[in-house]
Structure formats: C-alpha cells, structure tokens
Design a protein around this nucleic acid. Sequence first.
DNA 1: TTCTAAACGAGACGGTACGTCCCGTCTTGTG
DNA 2: CACAAGACGGGACGTACCGTCTCGTTTAGAA
Lengths: 222, 222, 222, 222
Amino acid sequence: MCPRFDDDVQSQLESSRRRGRPRDPELEGRVLDAAVEEYAERGWAGLTMDGVARRAGVGKSTLYLRWPDKGTLLAAAVEAIATPLAPSDTGSLRGDLELLARQLRAWYADPRGWAVTRIWIDAASSGQQVGHFVDVVNNHYRPAALALFERAVERGEARADVPAQLVVNSIYGVLFMYASMRPWDEDAPDPDDEGLVQELVGFWMRGMAPWLVNGAEGSGTV
Amino acid sequence: MCPRFDDDVQSQLESSRRRGRPRDPELEGRVLDAAVEEYAERGWAGLTMDGVARRAGVGKSTLYLRWPDKGTLLAAAVEAIATPLAPSDTGSLRGDLELLARQLRAWYADPRGWAVTRIWIDAASSGQQVGHFVDVVNNHYRPAALALFERAVERGEARADVPAQLVVNSIYGVLFMYASMRPWDEDAPDPDDEGLVQELVGFWMRGMAPWLVNGAEGSGTV
Amino acid sequence: MCPRFDDDVQSQLESSRRRGRPRDPELEGRVLDAAVEEYAERGWAGLTMDGVARRAGVGKSTLYLRWPDKGTLLAAAVEAIATPLAPSDTGSLRGDLELLARQLRAWYADPRGWAVTRIWIDAASSGQQVGHFVDVVNNHYRPAALALFERAVERGEARADVPAQLVVNSIYGVLFMYASMRPWDEDAPDPDDEGLVQELVGFWMRGMAPWLVNGAEGSGTV
Amino acid sequence: MCPRFDDDVQSQLESSRRRGRPRDPELEGRVLDAAVEEYAERGWAGLTMDGVARRAGVGKSTLYLRWPDKGTLLAAAVEAIATPLAPSDTGSLRGDLELLARQLRAWYADPRGWAVTRIWIDAASSGQQVGHFVDVVNNHYRPAALALFERAVERGEARADVPAQLVVNSIYGVLFMYASMRPWDEDAPDPDDEGLVQELVGFWMRGMAPWLVNGAEGSGTV
DNA sequence: TTCTAAACGAGACGGTACGTCCCGTCTTGTG
DNA sequence: CACAAGACGGGACGTACCGTCTCGTTTAGAA
C-alpha cells in the first residue's frame, strides 16, 4: 500500500530503476516544508491536507500516495525537521551535561520541538504505527545523549556501569516538565536561566557520584 | 450563554431554586466519565461529541448546554478525574519518595492517568484556553508533592531551602519518560520493577544531599 | 438508512410526530429544483453534489441524509418534475391518439423528458434500486395511456379485448425512436411534423382494426 | 496528437512501414472487448480507463495513444461490437418481419446489445460528440432493416412507396420498450413468447396494408 | 390544579475536512 | 517508435463530526 515503507533497499538497487515514472525526488521536501509551514501558521487543528497540497502545488492524491494519513505526514515532516541533538565534546562530563541541557531547553522552546514531542506522546499512547516513529526518537536522540557517557568512561571520569539510561531519562524528563509548564505558569523557573542549568547539572552529578571516579563531585556544598 | 460559568453562586442560593426543571445532578458525572473513557479508547482525534453523548445516554444539546465546546468538556473531565496524589506520611523522606514514585507509576499506567497527561501535553502545545487547565495540574499535583518536603523539613531531615520544585519536576519527569517509552520499547526497564524505584530514590537522595541534614545519605555506595 | 423510503405511513400517523427536529418540508423542493437546474445547465457530467448543495443553500450532509447518492437524487428530482401525461378526452379514439402522440413528442423534446427516459434506461439495465423508479414510470405514464383505451371501449369504439398494452408500447416506442434520432440525424423526419402524426395514427388504427367496432377505419386508402 | 485520426491513409501506404515498433494489431480488439465487458458489468459510471487497461493487459498510455478519451473509446468499442442485423430472405415479407423481430429481441436480450442501446441513449441525451456515433447506429442497423422492404417491393408484395422508415422505427421501438420493461416488470409480456411476435407482425402488416399488393392481409380477423 | 420555565432526548441542519477514486497527462525503462 | 508501468495535478465522491437549531417530553416551582 505504501511503497515508501515496504521497499527494501535491495530491490531498489537490484532492478536499477523500478518501471514506470519515478517519483519526483524534490516533491517530498516541498510537501514536508509546506506541512511544517501550515502547522506553524495554523496549528494542528488548522492543518489541512488540501491546504498542504495547495501550498506545495501538489495533488491530494500524491499526498496519499506517499503518506497514508495526516498524522503520518506530519510525523514525517517533523522527522525531517528534527535534527538530532549531538552535543560536541567539551572535554568533561560536567561540560557535556551543561551543553546537552542548554540544547534540550532550546529544542523544547522551539515550536517544532514541541510538535515532535507531542506527536511522540500521541503515538506512544495510541499504540499504532509507532514502530517507525519510535525509531526516530530512539535513534536520533537517545544515542546522542548516551554517547556523552561513553566519552566520560573513555576519559576515565566515570565507571563503565554508570546508569546512563536513568540519567538520560532524568535529563530529558525534567527539562520536559519545565518546558511544559513554562508557557503559562508565570511562577515557574525560566529554563533559560543559567542558574537552573547549573543547579540541575549539580543535582545529576551528585546523583551519579557513586559511579564517578572522582567522588569529590558528589557531595559537599551546593 | 453558558449558565455554568456566568451564574454567580449568589443567585443560585438566593432564589433557592430557579424556575423550570432543575439540572440532573448525576448527569455531569456520567458525561465526564464517558468523555475520559472515549478519549482513552480513541484518542483526541477519535473523541466525538456524539460518541460521548451516546455513551453517557445524553442528548448532544445537553452537552453544549453545559460546556461550550469539545475542548472545554475534556478539560472538565480531566479536572474531575485528576484526584491529587497525596502520599501518606511514612515517617521518612526516603519512604515518602518511594511511595510517591510507586503511586506515580501506577497513575501513568492507568489509562486515565495517561489520558490526563496527553491532554495536558496537547493543551500545552496548542497554547489555547490553557489558563484554566494549567490550574488543574498545578493545583492538584504539585502541592501534594511539595507537602512531602515540608514534612521532611518539619522532621528535621532536610533544610528549609531544599530545592523541592527541582526534585519534584525530576520525579514527575523521569517517571513520565519511563512510562512513555514502556508501551513499545521492549528493552526499556519495567517501571514496576522495585529495583528501579530504589535506584531512582537513591539518585534523588544523593542529588539533594547538600540540603539533607544527615549527609551520609548522599554519598557512598549505590 | 434512508428513512424517506423505509417509513410506512402508519408509523408517521401513529406517533404523531417523530422525535427530534422534524425535517424542513420546503427543503426537498429547493434541492430538487436546484438539481434539475444544475442538470439543465451543466449536463450529467457537470452535475455535482456540492454544486446542488451550494445552489440550494444546503449542507452536503443534508443531501446525503435524504438521498443515498447522486443518481437517486437526480431520479427524485426527475420524478418530481415528471408530470404524468393525461391526454384529455377528445371524444374519439383517433383524436385521443393524436393528442397523446403530440404530447409525447413534446415530452421527449423537453430535456427533462429525455432525462427521465435516460435514467429509466440506466435503471433498467443496472438492475439495482429499480423497484421504486419503475413505479414512477409505470404508475405515472402507462395508466394515463391505457385510460385512453378504456374510454374507447366505453364509447363503443373498440372491443374490450383490444390489445392496449401492445399499442401503447408501440406508441411510446416509435416516438422514442424518432426522438432519439432527431437531434443529430438531419434526414430523420421531424416529429413535430403534423403529417407524421397523422401517418402514425393511421398506422396504429389500421393495426388494431380487428378490435374496432367500425371496421371501415382499418383498410382502404392511406 | 492522435495518429489514429490525423494520419491519412496515403502516408501509411507510402512509406510502407513507419519507423519504430509497429502497433500491435491484436491489441485494439482486446481493448475494445475489454471496454464492452467492463461497461456491461459496471455501467458507464463504473467504467474505468484503468479497469479497461487492466482487463486488456495494456498500459493506460496506450489507450490514450489510440483514443482521445473515455467516450471515444466506448464508441469505438460499440462500433466494433455492433454487427449489423441482416435477416436472410425467407421468401415473404411476413416471414422476414418475423425473423427480424426474433433477431431483435435476441439482440436486446444480449448484454452487449443492451449496452449498445444504453450508450446510444446516453450519447443522444448528452448531445456531445455524437456525430460519429450516430453513423454507427444509422449505417449499421437501418439499412439492414430497410433492405427487407426492398426485397418485398422486388417480390411485388409491397408498393414502392411503402413507409419503410415508419415501420422500421415501430419495430425497433416497440421491441425496445418490451426489452426495457422486462427486467423488472413481472407482468410484462415475455418477448420470447412466439405469440407476441405473431401479434406484433400482424399489427404491423395491417398497419401497412394500404401499401401491400395483396390487401387481404390488412383486415379481417386477428 | 393549572401554568410556565427550564432541562432533556432526539435528530435535522449548514459547513468543513477527510481519505478514496478516477481522469487525462507526464515521464520513465524495455522491446 | 510502441508499449507497460505508474507518478502526477486536479476534482468529485460519499462519510464523519462540529456546533447550532428545533422539535416533543419531562420536571419542577409559581400562580
């Protein structure tokens, strides 16, 4: 039904080119851009397949030829948008964590970042067609965060059995909470506040102190 | 237009009973339950006013007589469902945190709890008519969690300036992450696992060690 | 599914008025008129449900609430349009036949008349949902034609066993042939030609001479 | 654009064979058969170019290479199907008429024959691109029927000025009426009934008695 | 008791978007 | 060049819901 997801790379290469008119390669980008623009302008409720088609200069049938429904189209658009977080090596675990925290709060502050999160939640709870979308999140975001700990182990800052998953979930989770409260709760701390970042990183470092080689980090004053 | 919101309590009491047939007192509960059940089963896209009306055995006009639109109805339903988590006093901060973590994972495992979370995300990202809905979450959940820290301060376990907000957000956030991954990531740790709870509580306790009166908790072995 | 056809008169009278908002009584006429106008302007290929809805100032759902599809709607429109042929009593069988022939060719010349015929043919060959439409043709047109012979029998012009069905079919059939050829075959006789009418009536009268009381009609000169 | 209609015979013969791959000669027949079969099964609304292409095992572009649109394809198919009725000489006008009537009712009973009739009606009412299609009907059917009268004149059975057109139209028309009623009107006479054929032929013979040389046919008993 | 006002069920209504289907055009690769 | 395959822009189809409306019915206090 949807060749896009069924085709294996093998068959594509095997027969050189499939018969019939090939798909317009630049069309997908045009549509995905149009979808994101429409979403940005009108929100989810105002996102219309006809609207996307019109903006992209495309027939509605072409949309449904490539994406089975509106949700999938938006997911694909979001996936195309979602550049993975890949905090560069700052030379220390603490520095890497600070960088990740700042990138993450920037990501959540971006409407597109929120859109990704929201679709991900919806997918998770609907339990349908999640397989593919889960990979997006898992493959794009998690490895980048885990790599940070691998570097720390290599550096000799942390023991190999550091509970990276737990810490990564804590990082994503707490920043998600701050971000979700921020838009409307005036009393909530501003995640842009550098002080908050420091506070958080300190909290995480102390939390995983037992696995850190230099145990001095984990205790003492704030 | 919508008596529910326009009427002041005064007039209700003053004239004892307004003329005409009084509102069916149990109808509201029936409708709200039906709304949450429909949402849990079908998601936001599949949530239908006709469906809610049918499930509740109610006319559609009655729905619109009480709630101006679908979003408002769902918000009211969530508010009614969202019973605050109020972990009882176990006698120690560590015990209270363990209890909160267990309650929280049970809440996320419950379809209704998860539904509340989804709606909250949706509301946060749509950025519309959230004002009222925010209060639901903030007023119902946060105080209960913060109370836990107040008790700890009273007991003398923690200093008064313990960053309760930060810890509470960490707790909610990390458990939310585990819950959202669980349905489809087979490798994800089971949040029902008591070991995970212990690990998490340890992580948190160490993280806030500087504010704990008995510093021994914060460092040392896992 | 379609109350319009399922309801028996009984239940309508029995419960006085069905529950819920009653159907707008003048809406049907508005829609049917709009359908015929659109058909007249744009032809079958250009007849659009949205177009009909817009012209009638009606929602598309209302159209589908009353008529299951485009064909049925047009059939209903045509039925509403199709005033039965009821040639008045001219005092003689020959006169009645002449009048019927003239009315019939006028009917076929009218686009609405053709539309009726065409839909009837389509219905006959598709073999679906014909039951109702057949009644339209059979009950509205045939009796009127047969009544003509009943009058002749009463007058004593014809014997009671005159093969009225055969003659009626001949009349409708031959005029249908002339009409169907006329638009594009320039050589075809003009059915408006009074001479043709006379020729035809003569042909029929002679054909049924054996059943006519005054046998002189049936033979002799043209 | 469409070689089939633009090419003159000259160029085809002149260059013996045009360059490139020659047209598959049996392809046209396969497509035309497929078109009529599809039409017979599904009707005009259900007749699909893709469907015809699939059934004929042919690419859609090939269809449009030979026929400019759906209507033209169907017309061509009908023309190919419509083998002229050519009742053989039975030796008498009465015998020829009986044979014609029997052939005609068989033709109408055949789904393909009925399909031709439907298409003809549709074409007549749409009033578009009929010019060519009219020739199909007029040239294929009418001459065959009129030849019957020419033979009668040659035999000396009928005068040369017999209104053959009128009688032919009567024959086609009345049998068409019987055929169109048959599928659903249980009370309608069965056109397979030999008695009906006799009755009809008698009716026609009496009708044209004035032009018959032996006037005895035209009057008397049934 | 009778009257009146409101709540309630049912469901018709105008509107809008959905996802499907088909047309006629186009762009490929293969014979 | 003909042909099969099939992507493409366009547009109508019939379905499903939204939020509004108009009914007839029910339930109570007010007259």
